[in-house]
Design a binder for these strands. Structure first.
Length: 687
RNA sequence: CGGGGCGUGGCGCAGUUUGGCUAGCGUGCUUGACUGGGGGUCAAGAGGUCGCAGGUUCAAAUCCUGUCGCCCCGACCA
């Protein structure tokens, strides 16, 4: 193709919002333009790269026995109701209501659709195994789209779904997909490592991610030095004995002191407390409150709180009066504000009778409504507090929510401020396990305390005191809070950190971009959607499924993220917008133009993907543009060289061009090109 | 969703604190001349309802209120 006729709007300056190299370069090289947050137009070169990558994916998928289909982007929400994933995916789904009031989603993925298809049209084991895929636009309303096309709201994904008769069949299909993925990324010339990922319903190593190693990647890869073990940090398992560094001042020989409450004003974060008490994060028992989100309970809580406050505000001088009465009797407001679980505590009856008596006596006219709203409020608070889960990890560790959810057997998320305050009876930053049990028996019965191994192994530590601006020293796990019991779980619930080991080998950390994911699904979808087949004996069984995704855009972005220099993109020919460029250096020289055209035509006839830079512009601009858009191989035809009967050939990665006789030019170019194309990188040597 | 920041020719920015000239600069774009091997020089041009809406004022890019959009950090993410 001719450069002069293509829209390749290269720019020197980029919008300030492009931060990482691939994003900046894709804009500078005229591959993409942003339309809105997380949505991009692909210009001719960008689209061409996408299509080249997609074609490689298509060829390898077909070679592995998969069949291409096209499913609709528009899906009815009902399908998602059937699998319950409408709530699982939640806000990430792009939804809209059509003119008939039907709710629709723009496909973030297609398990439901493809499984429904198979449920309707596959009957017999004779039709299995089956592997269906498509290369199609997906929509995800990301919380925060970023890094250009690496995390966008609309992207091109190859998604494949396999159906087998049994686990053994799935294993075979999975392996075939895994191998196809290796070939795909090899052919694309993108370096990758394969890591264990958060596993599905089958358990074990049921999921692998293909990661392009890269410092700006969003995913953290945890691996041993020799890569005999590599996993996403969400998955990485650590030896339970690690992370238990000795705690200063307590080696086990030192007698353990009783707990001691210390005043730590304003020190709510681990760092602040450590500064204040001169301790290390590893000696802190970090307490994070999670909850099973329940918006109804939260709404009731908020409403009853408002009502209660309104009523208490209606009685003039009520608060002052209680302050005055504080010494004489249990002060109602402070009790209510202090305890979320009064209803459950032994003091409850006493509280009810005392407060009623007190209120009625002091403020007869309006007190009934106040009293009743107070009771309602306390009940609502109780229910809210009972959604809580208290999670303990060391101060230098981070909670891994995937592991946490697995250990709990349910999904929880970080609790909102109200819940934390209810549970700890203090501002955020001062929650702790000590003492909660004496005062809150119902809390222990109804909620869970989940403790990381490394906490259980701690001899002594510092924890929040459940009192604003106070912490507790000399906390001994097992002595000052339980390590076993009905609602106490000790498990691996944290992210790996430096120094951890896996099977005794030290773990290292690096970053990567997830470009592919293979996943064993099992029968989760086939059961819910009725994708069954009849086996040899005529009995119906659910298909055993797998799913396999590749982010096509991410292949491109990852390639650029990894392959670039100050002059622009350095791309493998398999996905570069063009494999080779012939540059007409002196447009006013008929010989130069003729010779360049000749070489260009012959290269094109030989099957090369070739671009002719025929623009009547300065040489410098052409050189800059060729480098910027990442042309792997460049042939320059100029007056100077032509006088000697030569043209210049230069790889993008060469420092200097090589002079080649004009009659050798085409053959030589094709030779170098085939060398470049066959230079498949060994994934393990990529690290 | 929480915290922070930004919206001024295509792009990058100044001007806003302290209201007041015809709203500037760089780059890009158009035309011409000179040039011609790593984004050239000179000259002449085109291009802006200062995100939008309302308000204050003799006067608003500038002050006030509201609103929309975008970016960063965090939280979230088969």
């Amino acid at each position: 193709m001719r450069y002069s006729q293509l829209l390749i709007p290269t720019v020197k300056e980029v919008p300030a919002d492009a931060e990482i190299p691939s994003h900046r370069l894709m804009i500078r090289a005229g591959f993409i333009r942003k339309v809105a947050s997380g949505t991009y137009t692909y210009l001719p070169l960008g689209l061409k790269m996408l299509q080249k990558a997609a074609q490689i994916v298509r060829e390898e998928m077909n070679a592995s026995g998969a069949q291409e289909i096209a499913m609709p982007i528009l899906q009815p929400i009902e399908l998602w109701h059937k699998t319950g994933r409408d709530t699982d995916y939640g806000e990430t789904m792009c939804k809209f209501t059509d003119r008939h009031g039907r709710e629709n989603v723009l496909a973030p993925t297609a398990e439901e659709v493809v499984t429904t298809l198979v449920a309707a049209d596959v009957r017999s084991y004779k039709q299995l195994p089956l592997n269906l895929y498509q290369i199609q636009t997906k929509f995800r309303d990301e919380f925060r789209p970023r890094f250009g096309v690496l995390r966008s709201r609309e992207f091109l994904m190859k998604d494949a779904y396999s159906f087998d008769t049994d686990i053994a069949g799935l294993e075979k299909t999975y392996k075939r997909m895994y191998e196809a993925y290796c070939r795909i990324f090899d052919r694309c010339g993108v370096k990758y490592v394969v890591v264990e990922a958060e596993s599905g319903p089958i358990g074990g190593s049921a999921s692998h991610e293909f990661m392009a190693p890269c410092p700006t990647g969003e995913d953290i890869i945890v691996h041993t030095e020799d890569y005999s073990y590599a996993a996403n940090i969400e998955k990485a398992e650590v030896d339970s004995s690690t992370g238990v560094s000795p705690v200063s001042g307590c080696t086990g020989e030192t007698p353990v002191l009783p707990t001691e409450e210390v005043h730590t004003p304003g020190a709510g974060t681990i760092e602040e407390v450590c500064d204040f008490l001169k301790t290390k994060p590893a000696e802190m028992i970090k307490t994070i409150v999670y909850w099973e989100r329940d918006n109804t309970v939260m709404d009731v809580y908020k409403k009853t709180l408002t009502k209660f406050q309104t009523h208490s505000g209606q009685i003039e001088g009520l608060r002052d009066k209680f302050e005055e009465l504080r010494g004489k009797s249990e002060p109602i407001i402070s009790e209510i504000e202090a305890s979320p679980n009064m209803e459950a505590s032994p003091d409850w009856d006493k509280f009810v009778s005392q407060s009623k008596e007190l209120v009625l006596k002091s403020f007869p006219p309006k007190s009934t409504a106040f009293y009743e709203s107070g009771i309602e409020f306390i009940k609502a608070r109780d229910r809210l507090a009972n959604t809580a889960v208290m999670v303990l990890v060391r101060g230098n560790h981070n909670i891994n929510e995937s592991k946490l959810n697995r250990a709990l057997g349910k999904n929880v998320e970080i609790a909102p401020e109200q819940v934390v305050q209810l549970v700890s009876r203090a501002k955020i930053g001062f929650a702790g396990p000590v003492g909660m049990w004496d005062k809150m028996d119902k809390f222990v019965k109804a909620n869970k305390l989940i403790i990381d191994h490394s906490i259980a192994a701690m001899p002594v530590g510092v924890a929040g005191a459940n009192k604003t601006d106070y912490h507790v020293r000399n906390v001994v796990p097992g002595r000052d809070f339980p390590l076993e019991g009905d609602n106490v779980i000790v498990a691996d619930i944290r992210n790996a950190v430096e120094g951890d080991t896996h099977d005794g080998k030290t773990l290292q950390f690096s970053r990567g971009i997830e470009i592919g994911h293979v996943f064993k699904l099992g029968t989760k979808y086939s059961e819910k959607l009725g994708a069954t087949y009849l086996d040899e004996n005529g009995s119906a069984k659910p298909c055993v499924m797998g799913c396999y995704g590749i982010g096509i855009n991410r292949i491109i972005a990852a390639a650029i993220e990894v392959g670039n220099d100050k002059n622009g993109c350095i791309l493998p020919p398999a996905i570069a917008p063009f494999e080779v460029e012939v540059m007409i250096l002196n447009n006013d020289s008929a010989e130069v133009v003729a010779e360049a055209e000749r070489i260009y035509n012959e290269l094109a006839e030989a099957g090369a993907d070739v671009l002719l830079d025929d623009r009547d512009t300065r040489a410098g601009a052409k050189f800059k543009d060729a480098d910027l858009i990442g042309i792997p191989l460049r042939v320059v035809v100029g007056e100077r060289g032509l006088k000697e009967g030569n043209v210049e050939i230069k790889r993008r990665t060469d420092d200097k061009p090589t002079m080649v006789a004009t009659k050798e030019a085409v053959a030589q170019t094709l030779k170098i090109l085939s060398e470049l194309k066959s230079a498949i990188r060994n994934p393990q040597s990529a690290i």
